[in-house]
């Protein structure tokens, strides 16, 4: 059974983290001119988020699925919860096919250094929502 009840929880917490990130000045500076538009596709529960870093916006659900990403990231919602708290080794998860990353290498590699600062943001989003049960 997934740690998330439904897609709405995924959008509220993981999507919420992205909402904060795209408005954060350091992220805006780090991602301008990168073309980094990430489609995050999760399973169990199914959820789709599009994070447009240069455009500073986050789309969810059908709106996200119909947009055009430059990088696609797929994983289960449980692994996503672990990953965005810094508890999933990305290289190992790729090798074990727990995570799938598609897109141009030069663009995709710009995503990885950005993930580390998001770990604290995600954990804070969970704490603020009183969802300590999701902390790993």
């Amino acid at each position: 059974m997934s740690v998330f009840k439904d897609a709405e929880e995924v959008y509220a917490f993981i999507g919420g983290m992205f909402e904060k990130a795209v408005q954060e000045p350091s992220f805006i500076e780090a991602t301008k001119n990168t073309g980094l538009v990430v489609l995050v596709t999760q399973t169990d529960p199914d959820a789709t988020m599009l994070v447009d870093f240069p455009g500073q916006k986050v789309l969810v659900g059908d709106a996200a699925a119909n947009a055009t990403p430059t990088v696609q990231l797929r994983m289960s919602s449980d692994n996503s919860n672990k990953f965005w708290q810094g508890h999933l080794n990305f290289t190992l998860a790729m090798a074990q096919r727990k995570v799938k990353l598609d897109g141009k290498r030069s663009v995709a590699l710009k995503l990885l250094p950005l993930t580390q600062p998001l770990f604290d943001t995600y954990k804070q989003v969970l704490r603020d929502a009183g969802r300590d049960d999701l902390l790993v």
Partner: peptide, 12 residues
């Protein structure tokens, strides 16, 4: 030339 950009990431 960055043409490895076109290859699947796992196969690079």
């Amino acid at each position: 030339d960055g043409k490895d950009d076109e290859w699947p990431l796992e196969l690079r």
